[in-house]
Amino acid sequence: MIKRLIETCSSALFGKSKFRKSLRDKKLCSTPLASVDLELTSLDPLTTQITSIGYVSGSAGKIALSSSGYHVINTSADLGQSPVIHGLTLDILQQGEGIKEALKSLIPLLESHVLVFHNARLDLMALNSAFKRCELPQVDVVYIDTLQLALYQLNKQHQVLPSNSATLTVCRQRLGLPAFPEHNALDDALATLQLFYAQLNELGITLEDSIESLFHTNAVGRFSLGLSSS
């Protein structure tokens, strides 16, 4: 049992080292990024369902507004108090598209870009659940989490973090970015990508650096969405 545990730990460490090495080849100036945001029925990653998806691409420090996309999802899930936050009421959602069709349109983006989220864990778990429900094939993604980048900086400045100090809005305010309309998936995706570029400047990282230069912040990771073929 101890031998198996050692082998498992060694394999995990080797996998992490190999992943980190692969990031050295991805320069920020030439790696296509895609900021993705979801509006959800709740903050419970195990039960939440997607009500809308917004995304926008960028590269070399610029945002390609023409690349943006927005999908409202037709869902019969219990909305709870979520319409109060994002404004997507049942009558609006009933005019939306099926989650499987929306995810299929998203797959080429997931396969070709490094993803940027604010709170990657929640959004990736929601996407993973949706991929599995729709029986979509596995997609392996690399992501950067602006929430974790903010926490990395805040933890250097505070022993105890102030309440709500890492929300998207507060993070943008701290770096002098303008106010934006909150809780619309497309607006939030755009705001997140703007925040990421501002965070690079705060960290002293240039576009000539690689994504590996962010590895020490614990904001870079990989995730497998959907059903494995094995």
Rank of each mutant, 00 (worst) to 15 (best):
Q159E: 13
P162T: 09
N128R: 03
M125Y: 14
T206I: 04
V142K: 13
L136A: 07
E101G: 13
C134N: 12
F223T: 06
R133F: 14
L124W: 05
A150I: 11
L200C: 00
A130K: 10
S112H: 09
L225D: 00
R222D: 03
D140Q: 14
A166Y: 14
S165P: 07
L109C: 10
S105Y: 00
V114M: 07
S105I: 00
T146F: 10
L151A: 10
D123M: 07
S105F: 00
P178I: 00
N201A: 14
Q148P: 00
L203Y: 08
K104E: 11
L109R: 12
N218H: 13
A179D: 13
F117Y: 13
T217F: 09
D209Y: 02
E212Q: 14
H158Q: 06
I205S: 03
Q138E: 13
A130G: 03
Q194T: 09
I107T: 04
G221T: 09
Q173A: 06
L149A: 10
N155G: 07
C171E: 11
A185R: 03
S224I: 07
V141H: 06
L177V: 09
T192N: 05
L109Q: 08
L115P: 10
K132L: 11
A120T: 11
N218L: 11
V142N: 10
R172C: 05
H158F: 13
L225P: 01
